[in-house]
Design a protein around this nucleic acid. Sequence first.
DNA 1: CCAGACGTTGTT
DNA 2: GTCTGG
DNA 3: CCAGACGTTGTT
DNA 4: GTCTGG
Length: 253
Amino acid sequence: MCGRYALARTRGQLQMEFGAEWAVPEELTPDYNVAPTKRVYAVLERRVAPGAPPRRELRDLRWGLVPSWSKDSGGAAKMINARLESVAEKPAFRGALARRRCLVPVDGYYEWLVEGADRPRSQQRRHPYHVSFRGGRPLALAGLYELWRDPVRPDGDPDAWWRTCAIITTEANPEIRGIHHRMPMPVAPSVWDRWLDPALTDTDEVLGLLRPPPEGSLAAHRVGDAVNSVRNNDPSLLRPHQPEPEPEEAQLF
DNA sequence: CCAGACGTTGTT
DNA sequence: GTCTGG
DNA sequence: CCAGACGTTGTT
DNA sequence: GTCTGG
């Protein structure tokens, strides 16, 4: 699963990293608590004119895919992930898988270890972890994007068209399975070109590009509970959690 | 034919 | 319990 | 993803 | 838009 992440790289760093020819005019600020419905950076390729070669762009999309046929944007915070196992068949995703793929760069994502998962939510405890590549390279997560026309806005309104995205999930790598059994799927740099190529529309071939990263390449560390609330957003969210020391026996006297 | 859904997670 | 907002 | 709200009437 | 259910 992937429902929260951190990305503190600048527009220029990302443009360089992904070889994007064009980037959004407005820079997004570093975000240590990216949540669904927020604006996020994404790399995608599109033809600027019919027949022209695709141009690689760094854009900002809204996280939470709204299918083009949606009557309203109400479900915008629901489709934040798409299961790899079913993405090629689901009506909400298969068109985007064939023609509108993107990469969502993240420094790392947050995952919550749930204690007491078999009990009611009120009796559970959640412990946040930050998951990233050992060595500090960003993860380029496999994403899909979609265009949606907001029917209540007039032609020419800059917000008339919504550009939204979802992140593909798969079975978790062994080294992080103790926290959660799902993870977002990173795309290896060697297949970025193919993944982004809008001319590749064979979904079997597309899915063949996605392989879990090498076992052991990911690492998770416990972070503080402050990340739970989206109101908190600063680099300290990434600091390793300091567990409360057990009270000394002597203090009981 | 038309109406209504179209998703994920986790839980059981 | 369930939905909305961030 | 988690946190936080979740409602009406009428009165001021 | 496209598929499923009735």
